[in-house]
């Protein structure tokens, strides 16, 4: 009898605790959601001390060799209009400061999104009457790295509403869509398993605030779309083309996931 009372008491106590835990859970869930917006982590925070060290000092960060390339090209007149970027935009530190945080952007004239590489090439073809630079060429990488470097430290802030909304939705769907022989979506690695190891690598959130990044494995700077292609290939899925609508839409969604993160271009990653 005594035992039974004790058990009842215990049950009560347990139920009591559960109720409280339930409340606690409600709170915890609320906190997790709130923390998600603030608790977004750059790939930098997952990198080794050595890799972080390379990025920390502009003189040891090899990505700056590409920033220099971009800086040289900035004042070089090319094309039939005989103009350089500098002739129209002046000091990049001023004129390009905002550009690095706000792309991809919806553009009325093309009726879809445009990313920063494409914006630069539009200036080449339309404003300079020069040839577009090839994707992953040292010129386009150099200029993109230089332009984005002007925004270093500023929070990523892209527009995903209004006319950008349908493209954003496509990017989000891409991110969550299983694909390839391994049948995996971006989210399976970069959302569900961020912080866990995959072979020798620690998975990060797959943020793009540091792009173009200097990758030790590549031995050079590479674009966001090169990284997307690599991640598609890893799961044995057919990669899309650099500059494809699919990747530009995906880029907008991924940029938005990292909203508020400071631009790190050129980041160093392994």
């Amino acid at each position: 009898m005594k035992m039974r009372q004790l058990l009842l008491a215990l049950t009560f106590a347990t139920t009591g605790t559960l109720a409280v835990t339930g409340l606690g859970l409600g709170l915890v869930i609320g906190q997790t959601t709130a923390a998600k917006a603030e608790g977004i982590r750059s790939g930098y925070s997952y990198a080794t001390k050595e890799t972080q060290g390379l990025q920390d000092d502009d003189m040891s960060n090899p990505g700056y060799l590409w920033v220099d390339t971009g800086e040289d090209l900035w004042s070089k007149a090319e094309g039939d209009a005989g103009k350089s970027c500098n002739d129209c935009h002046g000091d990049a530190a001023e004129s390009m400061k905002k550009a690095g945080v706000s792309y991809p952007k919806y553009k009325d004239d093309i009726g879809k999104l445009q990313n920063i590489e494409q914006r630069i090439n539009q200036c080449r073809t339309d404003n300079m009457k020069a040839k577009a630079w090839k994707w992953e060429s040292s010129q386009l990488l150099g200029m993109t790295t230089y332009v984005r470097n002007q925004s270093r430290g500023l929070p990523v802030s892209v527009a995903v509403d209004g006319p950008a909304a349908p493209f954003f939705a496509k990017g989000e769907a891409f991110f969550n869509q299983r694909r390839g022989l391994l049948d995996m979506a971006c989210k399976h690695c970069h959302e569900d398993n961020a912080g866990n190891k995959i072979r020798a690598n620690v998975l990060s959130e797959g943020q793009i605030n540091g792009f173009p990044v200097y990758r030790l494995k590549w031995g050079k700077v590479g674009s966001t779309h090169r990284r997307f292609r690599g991640c598609n290939k890893q799961v044995r899925a057919k990669p899309f083309k650099n500059g494809s609508d699919e990747y530009v839409n995906l880029e907008l969604y991924v940029a938005w996931r990292g909203r508020g993160l400071g631009v790190e271009t050129p980041a160093v990653r392994n």
Binding site: D57, M59, S60, P62, Y64, L65, D68, T69, E71, G142
Partner: peptide, 23 residues
């Protein structure tokens, strides 16, 4: 554009300075 070199602009005579470079 293909190499960078950084040396302190000023130093006191006898100071040990650090030279940094990238290529």
């Amino acid at each position: 554009a293909s190499a960078r070199l950084k040396v302190p602009k000023k130093a006191k005579k006898g100071d040990i300075i650090t030279v940094k470079s990238l290529i």
